[in-house]
Amino acid sequence: MIKKLWTWFVAAIKETLNLSWTLVGLVIATLTLTGSAQQVTGLATIITLAVWLLTISFRKE
């Protein structure tokens, strides 16, 4: 179990690094927005990233 978690953790870091430029863009976009648009963009970014990382193995099948 721990080994699986570790494998996922390493894969998640790799995926995040792959998404670096996109994330930079999204962070900049979030910081450039204000009010409701900022809130929605920020939350959508975090949720999407979480879903993306949690479904690594699912997508690779």
Binding site: W21, T22, G25, A29, T32, L33, T34, G35, S36, V40
Partner: peptide, 26 residues
């Protein structure tokens, strides 16, 4: 329906300047 209504026009323009290039680059 009201997402972005509380943003000023200048702020929207500034965001566009950033968001559009990011999407295109991606």
């Amino acid at each position: 329906g009201n997402i972005g209504d509380d943003m000023t026009q200048t702020q929207k323009e500034k965001a566009q300047e950033v968001v559009v290039p990011v999407i295109l680059t991606r």
